[in-house]
Design a protein around this nucleic acid. Structure first.
Lengths: 142, 142
DNA sequence: TATTGTTATACTCTATAACTATA
DNA sequence: TATAGTTATAGAGTATAACAATA
């Protein structure tokens, strides 16, 4: 049970808030919450049902129902019955939802670009690999 | 308008979710949301009123009213009238609130310690200073 | 007039429990 | 029986608008 030095804890917590603020700000331009943005991002590249969506988002299935219903009402996603399983539905992006998702992703990348603009190439590489190693554990050479 | 490379964007966004998940998990042990945790953390070292609290949290003052009321109802914070300004109130931690705040901070530090356990001292130092530089801009030597 | 804070209201977001339909 | 999803309900969290009290 290691405890990180206070400076490291503070820096990572503050950085996480800065990134979340970027996501919230980009979403707010289209009145999307961070969770709605994640929903669109997840549905973007997966063929997925409500249950699996709940796993990705860390939400109960009943919460996902409301989330998807609100996004559907706004014309961003669609429910369609699964051809394989009569109980299941698939959630997919509408053309509008796809456009917003791509624009949002570009705006997030631009804002993070501003945040990291003062780094040189080596620093950026170091930051990226350190961040990756925290998320997925130490590098796993194949 | 610089745009960060995709790998950097992904790594930072995923890292921010990992840190937020730690905060949410630690809070959940005491049925505290991340915002309630932030509230306690802000009140911990400042003598502060509702308006300034709203600025720190990025919330409207009416939202802060509800947030503080719920925390007060649970015995975590106290409102007290400002001696200087008849309109203002100060929000302070109760002994229980202080205990929870300190325990929570320790648990967050421990969890982030786990996350960074695989880093050696140099890597940890590099990560900390890179993260600090993103949050507060490039190093500003005095 | 401006500022501090609360109240009323409405909506999003979330979980729990109970339910329907399909596997 | 188990799984996929919805509905009903309750509560937290948020903003806007209107308000009271103080500066």
């Amino acid at each position: 049970m290691s405890t990180a030095p206070e400076a490291t804890v503070d820096a990572l917590v503050q950085l996480s808030f800065a990134i979340q603020r970027i996501l919230a700000t980009v979403g707010a331009e289209r009145e999307l919450s961070v969770v709605q943005m994640r929903l669109l991002g997840i549905v973007r590249d997966r063929r997925i049902g409500m249950a699996e969506l709940g796993l990705h988002l860390g939400l109960d299935k009943s919460s996902v129902t409301g989330l998807v219903t609100r996004a559907e009402r706004r014309g961003l996603v669609q429910r369609s019955p699964s051809p394989d399983d009569g109980r299941a539905v698939h959630v997919t992006l509408t053309p509008l939802g796809r456009a917003w998702t791509e624009q949002g992703a570009a705006e997030v990348a631009a804002a993070i670009g501003e945040l990291t603009a003062h780094l040189d190439a080596d620093q950026r590489t170091a930051l990226t690999s350190l961040a990756e190693s925290l998320v997925s554990g130490p590098a796993t050479p194949r």
